[in-house]
Simulated assay, not measured.
Amino acid sequence: MTVLIDRPQATGRLRVAWRAAHDPVAGVTRWAQIAALAVPFTVLPSSLWRLPAAFSEGIGFGERAYIVSLSVLSEVVAFTTIGLIARWGEVFPRWVPFLRGRQVPTKAAAISAALGALVLTVLWTACWIAEFAGVTLRGEPTPANFPTQVGGWVTATYYLCYLPLLLWGPLLAAVTCAYVRRRRNG
């Protein structure tokens, strides 16, 4: 038995879902839209950089699951920034039990986003300061097998993939300020 898929219909549904998740609501400035859409891309390189380690030899199932989960969770959390410019950041989607169709409280979204921006800015800044000082966040010397200690392409790739994380917190803070201003004026 052959199952035929109606490609135009499937493509149409995907396009509608994409727009529902990404299209900005009225009043979103162009810079806020660009900043919000940039956040997942600041996280993507580090998420992709971790994945090959999950499938290298000598890694147990638990570590493998942790690495993959960390990459996926990082992207999901980064994607929530888009909620600050999209309709689902103002009105709960219909798939959310008990809250569907209700307005998202501006203070709840703004406080959680502002705290996230603060934590991310402090965390990634502290990580880079510690890295350049040659220690871990615990104050121990950076291990010899850490990517920044290996040298060559490994170190260059690591920096290329992890430096964008320094932008995550400030971009989230800027989009949060735009969200609060827009919701207050709207």
Rank of each mutant, 00 (worst) to 15 (best):
N145Y: 12
L44P: 01
K107P: 07
E63I: 07
T80C: 03
A108D: 00
Y162S: 11
A114F: 05
R13A: 13
T2Q: 11
L120S: 08
R138L: 12
G60N: 09
R100E: 14
T157P: 03
L99Q: 07
I59R: 13
A26V: 11
F146L: 13
G58C: 09
L115R: 05
E63W: 09
I82Y: 00
L115C: 10
L99D: 06
G83F: 02
E131W: 06
G152M: 15
A173K: 00
W153H: 08
Y66R: 11
E75D: 13
I82F: 00
G169T: 05
G169Q: 04
I34D: 03
T148M: 15
T157D: 09
V135K: 11
V43T: 10
V68F: 08
G151R: 09
F79K: 00
Q33A: 14
L167Y: 04
G60F: 03
L115A: 11
R50W: 13
I111Q: 00
S74R: 09
R13N: 12
A109W: 01
V25E: 02
V122A: 12
P52Q: 07
F61I: 12
K107F: 04
S56M: 12
I129Q: 08
R102M: 15
I67H: 13
S112Y: 07
C127P: 12
P45M: 09
A110Q: 00
P45N: 02
A117V: 11
S74Q: 12
E90A: 08
Y159P: 13
R87C: 04
V77R: 06
P164S: 06
A17Y: 07
G60V: 01
Q33H: 05
A10P: 15
V154L: 15
Q103I: 14
A113S: 07
F61T: 07
P24R: 03
G101H: 05
A156L: 05
M1L: 09
G83D: 01
T148W: 09
P93L: 07
Y159W: 15
Q149D: 10
L70K: 10
G169F: 00
R64I: 08
L70V: 08
V77F: 14
T136S: 12
G116V: 05
F79N: 04
L167M: 11
Y158R: 10
P105S: 03
